[in-house]
Design a protein around this nucleic acid. Sequence first.
DNA 1: ACACTATTTATAAACATTATAAAGTAAGAC
DNA 2: GTCTTACTTTATAATGTTTATAAATAGTGT
Lengths: 146, 146
Amino acid sequence: MSEVQLRDALDSLKGTGVRITPQRHAILEYLVDAMSHPTADEIYKALEGKFPNMSVATVYNNLRVFREVGLVKELTYGDASSRFDFVTTDHYHAICEDCGKIVDFHYPGLDEVEHLASHVTGFKVNNHRMEVYGTCKECEAKAGAH
Amino acid sequence: MSEVQLRDALDSLKGTGVRITPQRHAILEYLVDAMSHPTADEIYKALEGKFPNMSVATVYNNLRVFREVGLVKELTYGDASSRFDFVTTDHYHAICEDCGKIVDFHYPGLDEVEHLASHVTGFKVNNHRMEVYGTCKECEAKAGAH
DNA sequence: ACACTATTTATAAACATTATAAAGTAAGAC
DNA sequence: GTCTTACTTTATAATGTTTATAAATAGTGT
């Protein structure tokens, strides 16, 4: 099932003119299969077997490339190192208070809210709800035209 | 108006047995007055005038103390250094799906969601709504007692 | 297969943050 | 007010993550 995600990711990379190297393939594969949110170092160590000569810089470089293309999100918790998450299709909504238009947007970091809420309140947290309210670009332009 | 917040914070510190040093006073004062979310280094540089001999470690040490007491929240965006935010009374809700109980909790980081949503969607964002759903400790215990 | 350019590697550097030990100081007891 | 004690500050070094650099390597289209 994750094979499809991996293939889509590779196609997506090709489409933006990014070369597909064995290292990139392996890092992506690891991210797709990982159930956790690995750090750069964890990825590096996990791939040491396959690529004994791979440099840490390669991991960082490629994580940045993936992030810029939108395949991967960087999560910064309180601790020392960033964590990296393969982007799934979860999304939130931005709602225009003028015309009611709804626009999707992504924000992977909200998992952390669940963790903190659970920690602070003692709840077993199942899910959350989040919406952003404001004025869309068109309505904003209309309002400013007076 | 922020004088009250500062005094409350100092009282809160005294209450937990933390000594009030001139450096701590100054850091707290800066945080209360700051409209931004300063980094440790910004605080350090801002207080260089008043405390030419203050060590960077002092800033970090005290920010940790304030965080442990709950006066200050540490915000980690994508960039290198953490930002620190004096805790106000904003809060969110955790809602029990069993008994309907509502528990308050804090999470200052959601401002960042507004920024990102605005950036991605082009909205002028005014506010947001967020709730966490799950099972409270009591209902969880009841369910587990079978 | 070739050529061109992106990428990897190895290394060093930059940066934020923490640990350490000695000197200094707040806060309560007398 | 002074003393005493334990907590703080300071200065410095160390740690750990991330980025910069330059030479070597390897994808990709022709």
